[in-house]
Nucleic acid binder design. Sequence first.
DNA 1: CAACCTTTCGAAAACGTTTTCGTGTTGAAA
DNA 2: TTTCAACACGAAAACGTTTTCGAAAGGTTG
Lengths: 347, 347
Amino acid sequence: MRRKVTLKQIAKELDVSVSTVSKSLRNSPEISEDTRLKVQAFAKLYNYKPNNIALSLKNKKTKTIGVVIPEIVHHFFATVITGIEQVANEQGYNVIICMSNESFDKEVINLEMLANGSIDGFIMSLSKETQQKADYHHIMEVMNQGMPVVMFDRVTNEIFTDKVIIDDFSAAFDAVSFLIEGGAKKIALLTTVDYVSVGKLRTDGYVKALQTHGIEVEDKYIVKIEDIDNCDAKIHYLLNNEEVDAVFAVNELFAVVAIKIAKSLAINVPEDLEVIAFTDGIISKYSTPTITTVSQNGIKMGRKAAQMLIERLENEENYDVEEEIIEQYKTEIIETNLILRDSTKTK
Amino acid sequence: MRRKVTLKQIAKELDVSVSTVSKSLRNSPEISEDTRLKVQAFAKLYNYKPNNIALSLKNKKTKTIGVVIPEIVHHFFATVITGIEQVANEQGYNVIICMSNESFDKEVINLEMLANGSIDGFIMSLSKETQQKADYHHIMEVMNQGMPVVMFDRVTNEIFTDKVIIDDFSAAFDAVSFLIEGGAKKIALLTTVDYVSVGKLRTDGYVKALQTHGIEVEDKYIVKIEDIDNCDAKIHYLLNNEEVDAVFAVNELFAVVAIKIAKSLAINVPEDLEVIAFTDGIISKYSTPTITTVSQNGIKMGRKAAQMLIERLENEENYDVEEEIIEQYKTEIIETNLILRDSTKTK
DNA sequence: CAACCTTTCGAAAACGTTTTCGTGTTGAAA
DNA sequence: TTTCAACACGAAAACGTTTTCGAAAGGTTG
């Protein structure tokens, strides 16, 4: 077992000083070609690679990004991670991932754990519980320590920092308008409980679309679902008792459940019932019928978030003098579009 | 912006030495209660937290696990990560995640990047390309440096290390036997190309099951799929031209596509065609009909892998004298079971 | 031959910890 | 009064780098 070799060992072996070895490997002109080549050859032979931890300590930066998300078993978040990873790797950064499991406490712990020097900055999406409590002191805390934070998707107005989101409101508005213009009048909404920021925005978009087209918003058409495993009854009641000709679901799980229940009630999709879902994941693509969705480009979102964070990190270096960096925080909006599939009539 | 406070700063502020501060915070009996309390109060006030990087350098361990997987946008891998994260967090470890994107080169780069001190050990699953090339020198390399490696799911016999897998062969054997015992005779197999280790094993299990039950294995029933996006034609040909009464698919995507094609051919599932898929993911649970699957408990797999790695890491400490640790590598097998749903007749 | 400049290298500090060892002070025992 | 233990604390090394500064050796110039 040949353990990792250090500068000191190389220095001892070649009977030169540590500084000489370091300089040789970094091609310093201070060192004669003779010794430089000798050192480099030796280092190559022993497969020397500088120790990252030592570098981090010296440079006071780790070249590592911390990502805190509610869940990873969730197609959308997985795609965001993919995007983050892509640009992180392009720029020589590593990615540490932590999951809050939608828990406030876990989120706090994760932030604290990573903030102690392990990473240079955060990319995060709020847990449900955090949004519900509306307690963001832990995020303030790390930001006060000078650690940049980029939030995505589930964000809050109470924190001023870089954000990347989609325009949930407009996207919902467009999707519902599309249904209306296709002839639908009685459009139901399957949404989450209100404290989930994106669910709220999408609901608002739905309402606005109806109003704009002169359709009354009726409570009986709005189903708020807390837990996916117990939503069947509510949806069943809706489809069985109300005359619905379209459904707008704020995620694809709600949509696929609705379609399944419709089938069991001998309601044909899309002839008798049109369905549009938010979030384009694998389910929509492979279910029968395939589902028309609002694409929510996670990869693009992840890439953008990583770019914003890294840009801030690299700028910090230049403005090292702490000359009140132009703290202009930006909110980037990732465009969405409607992916037409078989759960809607108009093609 | 109140930057993180260090021992040195506390020491200066209180006019004591750095050692005194460190000892006070660690409740050393060397320090008088007076100064101890004073230091602790001050540290608490300034929210002192030891710098992880410095600790890592000193202790020569990072309390971080590196995970290298082919993709994260893949329900199975996402569940494994979830499992790894769970026990890692319980034991105070962080998790760095890298994706190989099924590329050999990327896998090599990731290993090298992480091996330079960033992590204490690896958990990994081989990329397709790596399995195809059967080139594992990069893994040997990090192992030679004394870094423990645990492989899961996509493993290789050529490397001796800890592994955690499911019994792909037996699981496939059982699933196909289940179909046979339910009355199916003409059972098709939708599988991957051979170099993917798990695909191969599942194929072998299928073959064995047929043979055991005295059914001839016929090539026309075996469809090898390279790319999910171009498999429609092959499956369509199979279902349209051969009399098939059951399909065994090595993953759920193949299964759901087969069901869709069956529907378009007016073949009813499960009456005319039974379907069983490997890997229990969300698709199987939400498709119509729901699909009977071989559960592949990713969480359990991830938890086990993390446990094995951490156990080895913590043991290293004790056997520090490098007394030829009992290098008994283990291969843990995670049990699978058949989850009966609506794509098969027998309940 | 003296003064000076290059070339080439090493010593040391720094990053933030922990830990070992040494040392000064105090009080009590002899 | 001397001796010694107990107590409380500080100095320094170590982890592995990079970088600044100083210095020795040799060569060049006037």
